[in-house]
Design a protein around this nucleic acid. Structure first.
Lengths: 163, 163
DNA sequence: TAAGATTAGTTATGCGGATAACGTTAGGCG
DNA sequence: CGCCTAACGTTATCCGCATAACTAATCTTA
């Protein structure tokens, strides 16, 4: 692939990341939330009480990130944390009543955001979009590297220019 | 749009952002660069010397972010900063020779990354991808809000800001 | 020309997210 | 049983990116 094409792809992904996150921030700000926190709340609403390690896995972020976010959401009263029965290492996280109410609000914003995002696209494109994006994400996933058949042997590239 | 569909879209975008950036970090690390810095270098390589304000605009990030990144890239010797002739406020940023060489390396990584990202997609899909992603980004752009529907009068607002 | 608004840049601070190093608890297995 | 390893969580530190508040320079314009 030539550079211009690669740049178009990479830059578009970068820009989308930036803008989408910025819009999330804007929508979340009135509720006192920051981008990333909504994902944690939504995951708890979806799956119910869970261990921080599971949250880390589900959210696709590292464990220290979960620790800090969870601490702040707990301080804000949105979630509750307690040590897991039967495993003193683990910490169970769950929504409080207030957190559940807040999450209901967030769900609304989530719909607003998605609708804004796909404005002007055909229904077919919208339907295919999540699958397409997930494919892209999976292709560059470094947490759960899955075998892509061709493309690259695990070793270094055939030629390395720094000479 | 119902929540499940919205969630699929938003979460896919979030995941792609996270993974794509993580992969960039992995590719850039051997060169001592962090994600975001490569965009600055590539922009300078593309457009030539420019003012930080223009960089901020081109990169889609705020000015303080440019200040800090530029400071670090300057400290690393990749770029040079000098006050603009004819405007004492402005700071011209340009690649050093070393920076240009590094950027050539980065261009290679950029191609590798894009190729990984679109692995398994048809040529047609790949061709349409940048346009699609840019549409999404534009739809949620808060920096250059463009009127999607008529929604707001383009000219002066009906109500005046605090006088 | 002098006053006000605009623009460029910086500093301070906060958040999400990453890695590295550490302490603690569980579990596997001689 | 005791040891060693793995897993969970936390702390510390770094970076990108954001907003708010500030200085300094430029442009308007009255």
């Amino acid at each position: 692939m030539d550079f211009d094409q690669a740049d178009a792809v990479n830059q578009a992904i970068r820009l989308l990341s930036l803008r989408h996150r910025a819009r999330i921030a804007e929508l979340l700000a009135p509720h006192g939330l920051h981008p990333g926190q909504e994902a944690l709340l939504l995951e708890l609403a979806r799956t119910g009480p869970m261990i921080q390690a599971q949250l880390s896995e589900a959210l696709g972020v590292e464990r220290p990130s979960v620790t800090l976010m969870a601490r702040k959401l707990e301080a804000a009263g949105h979630i509750r944390r307690s040590s897991a029965p039967g495993d003193q290492r683990a910490t169970v996280v769950e929504l409080t009543d207030g957190g559940r109410a807040l999450t209901d609000q967030v769900k609304q914003l989530w719909c607003v955001l998605a609708q804004e995002t796909v404005a002007g696209l055909s229904a077919g494109t919208v339907a295919e979009l999540p699958g397409l994006l997930r494919t892209l994400a999976r292709n560059v996933d470094t947490r759960h590297p899955h075998r892509r058949r061709d493309d690259a042997a695990p070793g270094p590239r055939p030629e390395d220019p720094p000479a």
